[in-house]
Nucleic acid binder design. Structure first.
Lengths: 226, 226
DNA sequence: AAAGTCACTATTGTTGACAATTTATGTCTG
DNA sequence: CAGACATAAATTGTCAACAATAGTGACTTT
């Protein structure tokens, strides 16, 4: 449990990771007030590092804190979730364009290999939403880092993806359209391989827009309640 | 010094604000290592709240922390500053579009009033870069909040603007083109008043792109060294 | 009986002391 | 003389006790 993962791993980092995954996985329910001592006993931490982690998480918008009144996980409305996708649309469009201009040939090869393994996973574990979601995350992760835009990657990976993943877990369905999403991923990867930044941006924006509309439709159908 | 500004203002908040402004104003030099005890004596704080604030600032990307090795203000290269502007271009474009769709008539009136006062300030204090920069910030701030996109506003106001302002202070010149920028602001405000989201987005993107090119040119001329 | 006020409790914010780690310095050896 | 190892000092990470605040409940008053 306490191996030296990379360099030194401080208690505050541990607390941060624990809480973040707990929030993303839904173990910590949004809106519900959670006490510090309860969190400490639950994750075997002491209050010092915990408070430091709480500060970080508050800064990232995953939880809100009122002085002397406790901490609670942020609860996002359906409208706000849609707004999140609108932000992703523009930012990941930029990321795709810059990735097309800057990714190394090796990274592009890895991107294709990633998609191959995703295809296999989809065929094997048909309907396993979990693998879809993780595969989707993997693809977008590679493009964000491939943009070579430090701040952009930081904002996407550090802020937006965690909030989106939080709702993926809660909705338990990533998109419900694995083959279609995979095809869209392939086309984006091809555009990047051809160094066509404009096309990659266009396709990425359309891809995320489609995912947003898909979720919006499901919410309107009443299949998903937030 | 310790008035009750709004509700309750905790020591950690105080530390956060102090450090943030110190970083933005350049009192804390990027790259230089700063000890915790030194910061404590400098801002009359104790290490607990300070560390909490450090965690928040690290999470926002204003400083980097290596375990047991201290804290230093992040140093951003010229290329990274340009990347920051590319992010702003897309995100503020989105903000302008949504602001055109969602701002209230009152907010739009305020926006125009703001630009009027900026015009006066530019005429009166000709060449005072400080007022320009603050005025520019004010304008973009109003549009970010006017977008009614909570996360978008949070990312722009909480993450990007502080980094940009940090370099504005250090470069001491916001753009050096006050009248031109004001005209661009006016056109954006008009597009918003006409509820023309597409146009507002286009104009905002062009506005930020122009600002980026202006800084890029000055850096290449050697007038600004980062 | 209802509403407002006061006191109490539980939780958060803060502090200072203690432990762990990194870095730098100094010495020893090749 | 240079490099590496070990030791020591200074700085950071962690902990547990103390102080302050907000929320809650009961009591009094109108």
């Amino acid at each position: 449990m306490s191996e030296v993962a990379s360099q030194t791993y401080t208690r505050a980092d541990e607390a941060f990771d624990c809480l973040q995954t707990a929030i993303v996985k839904g173990d910590l329910v949004p809106g519900e007030k959670i006490g510090e001592v309860e969190l400490c006993s639950r994750f075997n931490l002491t209050r010092g590092p915990l408070r430091e982690a709480l500060g970080r998480l508050e800064s990232r918008g995953l939880l809100v804190r009122r002085p002397h009144a406790g901490v609670k996980v942020v609860s996002v409305s359906a409208e706000e979730l849609m707004e999140l996708y609108r932000i992703r649309e523009t930012m990941e469009g930029l990321a795709a364009r810059q990735a097309a201009e800057r990714m190394t040939d090796e990274e592009i090869a890895d991107l294709h290999a990633t998609l191959d393994s995703h295809e296999q996973m989809i065929e094997q574990a048909q309907g396993q939403a979990y693998y879809q979601a993780e595969g989707d995350y993997d693809f977008h992760h590679r493009i964000a880092t491939g943009s070579r835009n430090t701040k952009l990657a930081q904002m996407l990976l550090g802020d937006l993806y965690y909030m989106v993943r939080m709702y993926r877990y809660r909705l338990s369905t990533s998109s419900g359209r694995p083959h279609m999403a995979l095809g869209e991923h392939r086309r984006i990867a091809e555009a990047i391989a051809q160094r066509d930044g404009e096309l990659a941006e266009f396709l990425m924006k359309r891809h995320i827009n489609a995912a947003r509309q898909n979720i919006e439709r499901k919410i309107k159908e009443g299949a998903l309640t937030i």
